[in-house]
């Protein structure tokens, strides 16, 4: 059964989720990839803060295609980017900004799994490349911050409506579907090597 959630999401609700659950999301979602992570962390180091508050909100690893129609931005396509690029920044980002969730593709490494467990956050896997489908789950673009970072790197403020399906790839209990898959892949390698004659 698919679970419906709306941002901001309480820690209690996040803790109820388990790896493998299917979620559809409503509410405000912020896009943020490499540059947003770098600049947001820089901002607080210098005593400032980023233009939006990520606390209990959801950050989407996404560099969308936007089109300006009159004065309003409209979303053309909005699939996820590769989350592992943010591996080195995410644990600190989670610690400092306390988001409830991250949406992305490809999964994230152990330090992020640990941070999610500690601070009550989850990782939602959305189908990579399925950008038009994802855009259907966004009913409005509220605005943009840090546009000077470029269209893909800016913070876009999106209003999600039934964004999904999202698979809980990493839950707040230390479970990661990606780590599970990796483990079983490692287990199969021996036999595959034998078959290929390279054992």
């Amino acid at each position: 059964m698919a679970i419906k959630l709306k941002t901001p999401i309480s820690e209690e609700d996040i803790r109820k989720l388990h790896a493998g659950d299917i979620v559809y999301l409503d509410g405000t979602v912020y896009t943020g990839r490499d540059e947003v992570h770098i600049h947001a962390l820089e901002a607080i180091e210098k005593g400032g803060k980023p233009p939006v508050d990520f606390e209990r909100m959801v950050v989407y690893h996404c560099g969308p295609i936007m089109k300006k129609v009159g004065e309003e931005w409209t979303l053309v396509a909005a699939g996820p980017t590769t989350s592992s690029r943010m591996n080195s920044l995410e644990p600190k980002f989670i610690e400092k900004f306390r988001p409830a969730g991250i949406i992305g593709k490809g999964g994230m490494s152990q330090p992020t799994v640990d941070a999610m467990k500690k601070f009550g956050a989850v990782y939602f896997a959305i189908t990579g490349g399925a950008a038009v489908l994802a855009a259907q789950g966004v009913k409005k673009v509220h605005g943009v911050h840090w546009f000077e970072l470029g269209m893909p790197e800016a913070i876009w403020v999106l209003e999600a409506e039934n964004l999904g399906p999202l698979t809980v790839g990493i839950d707040s209990h230390g479970n990661s579907l990606f780590a599970d898959v990796n483990k079983s892949v490692q287990g199969r390698l021996g036999k595959i090597r034998e078959k290929l004659g390279i054992a």
Binding site: P64, I65, T81, G129, A130, A131, V132, A135, Q136, P165
Partner: peptide, 28 residues
């Protein structure tokens, strides 16, 4: 279920992109 859902999303996305003449993926 999990992989089936991923592929279903991909196929749905391909159809939506074609019908609406929109980029299949935002990373063009």
């Amino acid at each position: 279920e999990v992989p089936k859902m991923q592929l279903k999303a991909i196929l749905e996305n391909i159809k939506l992109a074609k019908d609406n003449v929109k980029p299949v993926c935002q990373d063009t």
